[in-house]
Design a protein around this nucleic acid. Structure first.
Lengths: 241, 241
DNA sequence: TTACTTTTTGTAATTTTTACAATAAGTATT
DNA sequence: AATACTTATTGTAAAAATTACAAAAAGTAA
């Protein structure tokens, strides 16, 4: 790491805002994306294999530096779009990791985001580094570069916490879905089985899960009613809380 | 803002780690602390009045730049200790605010932390900028600099969400406390009244709230039993979850 | 028509939450 | 010492939510 020129710091004021704006700091900040993949029995995480030192050959989270002229959220959205080519991905900031030694070559603070996608809708070719990207089960992660294992653990915990209260499944399962499909989503994410009848009662309380007049087709058993997400109602209820 | 020299960015690699370590980025990052004060009927927030532009005269959150050689959490701890002179403050990272235009003079990304303290234990003189610091009710905040209003709102929401599950009251109320004192803490933070009997039943479920054989003294009514926080048990239960 | 599969509804036991009351145990006053 | 008063502490019954499990409904396939 290059030497730090400490004369740039003014210690007779406590607020950062009095630091001259032409000061340079030898640091970088980045975003890292934990993209969870839904579609198999176990939840998956999208990892890329490092082609350069440090940690060459190890797996890492997709991420990038934040451009000087883009918001943090915009940056995460940009990386996720490049990676998944999905237009309207829901993603959320998780935590910022800023240990001094988290990067062996310098001071890099990273802001972690997570998103969850349907693996079927995911097109690896669309992203320019996609040939290196691969899904891994959250239950069996390889050795990871940097502190990316911590980032995944933290994000996975947050994902689970949000699953019951936020409609994370929106955009992941079909637009019109059966309650059994919705239940499968919950079961995969939370790695836990639910009772059919009781699950339905719980969903009944989510007013934003609305039944339609349509039914499944071409199934070798009784077709299930299809439901959909009432986004407007959800947003309205969110505001008033 | 000084012009961005985009040639420093390498776009043929997606990972930040391949960027030359001697690159400079025209950005700074800081931490901001939302210190909640317990002691009055309403919850309070500690604010400092700005003595310089921009936003001169407005109130702002105490904060500082993160040193090149200190972890984010260390940085928050340092500021909080300087501000409150309390040695073992519990604080937690809340969110990172990184909108491009959040600071009028340049790109400053800030990581927000919150803590809660007993206002009685707080000694303003200890901090070098303490003559400018003042408590404000969360219900009646003044006009705030930057996006600090957003930061407070976000932190307050998180504080409330954590109150029921984390022993935030530890270190804030007396070491040995009555259940009524504990109830008051909950009521102030959540701005909500609880039923005496039902509150006790809920606390009964928190195994880490242990009764002692001591009782209140010098009260003009029946003395209450004193309880204490079993930190070891709490940490043990945390690990196994 | 029957077997089979899944959806959908129901139900009773259990547990948790809530509202409210009764009792206990101190101090202060007469 | 007796009484009033205040808060602590315990109790209790109704209501609500959760759980385990079963039955009925509605389709396909043979």
């Amino acid at each position: 790491m290059a030497k730090t020129n400490k004369t740039l710091r003014r210690r007779n004021e406590y607020q950062i805002y009095d630091v001259p704006i032409d000061s340079f700091f030898e640091l970088a900040f980045s975003i890292d994306c934990v993209v969870f993949g839904y579609g198999k029995k176990d939840l998956q995480v999208l990892l890329t294999q490092r082609g350069a030192e440090p940690y060459k050959g190890l797996w890492a989270l997709p991420g990038d530096l934040v451009y000087p002229d883009e918001d943090l959220d915009t940056s995460a959205g940009r990386v996720l779009k490049a990676l998944t080519s999905l237009p309207d991905l829901n993603f959320e900031q998780v935590h910022t990791f800023g240990a001094v030694d988290r990067h062996p070559l310098g001071r890099v603070v990273t802001v972690a985001y997570y998103a969850i996608v349907n693996m079927k809708g995911f097109n690896p070719k669309a992203a320019f580094w996609a040939d290196k990207a691969k899904w891994h089960s959250v239950k069996n992660l390889p050795k990871l570069a940097f502190d990316h294992r911590d980032i995944i653990d933290y994000s996975y915990k947050k994902l689970k916490e949000s699953t019951m209260t936020k409609p994370l499944w929106n955009g992941v399962i079909e637009e019109k879905f059966t309650l059994t499909q919705l239940q499968s989503f919950f079961e995969t994410v939370l790695d836990k089985k639910f009772d059919k009848g009781n699950f339905r009662k719980k969903i009944d309380l989510f007013q934003y899960v609305k039944e339609t007049e349509e039914f499944e087709k071409d199934v070798p058993y009784r077709p299930s009613r299809l439901f959909k997400f009432d986004k407007k109602l959800y947003q309205k209820n969110e505001e008033s809380s």
